[in-house]
Amino acid sequence: MYEFNYRKVDSVAAAVEAMQQAEDGKFVAGGQTMLPTMKHRLASPSDLIDLGGVAELTVVNVEDGNLTVGAMTTHAAVAASAEVQRAIPALARLAGNIGDPAVRNRGTIGGSIANHDPAADYPAAVIALGATVQTSKRAIPAEEFFTGMFETALEEDEIVTSVSFPLPEAAAYMKFENPASRYAIVGVFVAKTGGEVRVGVTGATACAHRGLLLEEAMGGELDASGIDSVELPVEQMNSDIHASAEYRAHLVKVMTKRAVEACR
């Protein structure tokens, strides 16, 4: 780890101001990706602005048919939240299976989506549920938020403040874990909301995305019978020592079918 300035703030406004003053600052939420990256000397921010003390970012509530989760809500808190379990049980289960207990007790939903690891779990849910990402500047629809591998629509001094999920009629997440890291080799979130079925896919490609071919095959219903005949673009799939592109494409379909099954 290289030396850096540590700044603790107690409001979103103070965090933004600290960032604007920093030479090469980074926001840190739970730090579950940021700190290991710094420890390996792969990142060297001049300033680390800790959002851990910003109370306004930890709200969880259901209002007007939306579940809103504050950006600094940890995975463990989402998993254990009675409100989340009632509103979108699939989201609580997803959060309860991220990483290990240490990661779940430090890592946050805002940190996860802002980092946008292409194998993270939350992005699939955010996309499939048609969530809206609220930031310090604006509201960003899920499909516009994730722009590429470790890339999002966020600006340098923009902070995710919460994520709002419309309540679905049915939802389920199926994850095929990397045996080493337990990140998603492939994760598929299927949700039926307002009569529309959406599929969010993570792990499979460089960027979490909506599974439009899969949705088309389902014809707007929770019906997996057409999934086998979908031809996913293998050339767009990730490939590594754990899973080839071809295998990943296959797993996307298997996980989709299982998620649809779990929705019913």
């Binding site: 990397n178 045996p179 080493a180 890291s181 990140y183 020592i241 754990h242």
Partner: peptide
Amino acid sequence: LVTASYMDYAM
């Protein structure tokens, strides 16, 4: 070494 951490080496 591709498997140089527990992210890729599965115990």
